[in-house]
């Protein structure tokens, strides 16, 4: 693995290798002193051309837990606002000596573009509606912690699938690990022609939830619902909001995931706050371990021991 842009070319053992490293990282995070020298001397740059405090914080904390230096580049306050191209920005960062770039961008494909000019490893921290691979890895890692094995499990991804990079990365990764993915949401927020092994598309939430082992509620942007695509906020809440009775359809042992931050009472009902089936905080924790593992694999290599 030279970069992490998406899951093209991945196989199940690639993910398993990463999860094994994440297990080691999770153990580090349980220590009283949560810091190892594994990435001492390396500089990780988070280049966020689109805001995301959570993802950036998670990556930066992951890098610091392994003693890397961290520099952040935020487009809003930078020369990019003055017309500098993405290429010039990336080449400048690399010339400053950063060893790895985590990129977040509003355009699908921007992470590939950064990789073309970077010459150092690139992690896609989310590009447009295309991919957010560390999110999918932390989702799978969270599910694996509960199930041990994803094979034969049925995972419903619910909401604005069409515009979701989280959905796209999960529908690449989870089937690779043997799980079946069911995409569910309003007709105009679902892909029209997407198909693949272990992939199902359904506009009917109740039937999608029957027999589901986990439900991932995607963040729904109010702007999308107000964008004239024929789903109002009340209609969305009535038909697709995940609430306790709907989650009960999936069963008492079903797991609830959400990439965060949650819009309570939009995609998820307040009556699920504190529900024992919710894995939301585990996801945040898994995110740190996974991002430490990815940084480690890209900067040091998977062979060596971290701690």
């Amino acid at each position: 693995m030279r970069d992490l842009l998406d899951f093209a070319g991945w196989s199940k053992p690639d993910a398993e290798d990463l999860f094994a490293t994440a297990d080691v990282m999770a153990e580090v995070l349980r220590r009283p002193v949560k810091r190892v020298p594994a990435l001492q001397g390396f500089t990780v740059c988070t280049a966020f051309f689109e805001n995301s405090t959570r993802t950036r914080t998670s990556f930066e904390l992951a890098a610091r837990r392994m003693s890397a230096d961290v520099v952040s580049f935020a487009a809003g306050t930078s020369s990019l606002a003055k017309g500098e191209s993405l290429r010039d920005t990336v080449e400048t960062l690399v010339a400053m000596g950063v060893d790895l770039i985590v990129v977040r961008h509003s355009a699908s494909g921007a992470a590939h573009l950064v990789r073309r000019f970077a010459g150092v490893p690139v992690i896609n921290g989310g590009d447009g509606a295309r991919a957010h691979p560390t999110q999918a890895l932390l989702d799978a890692y969270t599910l694996r912690a509960h199930w041990g094995e994803l094979s034969g499990k049925r995972v419903v991804i619910l909401g604005d699938v069409l515009h979701s990079r989280v959905a796209r990365s999960n529908l690449e990764l989870l089937p690779l690990l043997g799980a079946k993915v069911v995409l569910c949401g309003p007709a105009n927020l679902l892909p029209q022609s997407l198909s693949g092994p272990n992939l199902e598309v359904s506009p009917d939430l109740d039937s999608a939830l029957d027999g589901a082992d986990a439900v991932m509620a995607l963040r729904v942007q109010r702007e999308r619902l107000e964008g004239g695509l024929g789903v109002s906020l009340p209609e969305y809440a009535a038909r697709y909001q995940l609430n306790r009775s709907r989650l009960d359809r999936a069963g008492p042992r079903a797991l609830l995931l959400h990439p965060g931050p949650m819009n309570r009472d939009v995609e998820i009902s307040s009556d699920l706050a504190g529900d024992p089936r919710s894995c939301v905080l585990e996801q945040v924790h898994a995110g740190l371990a996974i991002r430490m593992a990815v940084l480690y694999h890209l900067l040091v290599g998977k062979k060596e021991r971290a701690a």
């Binding site: 699908s108 069409l162 515009h163």
Partner: peptide
């Protein structure tokens, strides 16, 4: 082009 590929790529 709108189709399988655009939906895969999120474009």
């Amino acid at each position: 082009h709108e189709g399988q590929v655009s939906e895969r790529l999120g474009l």
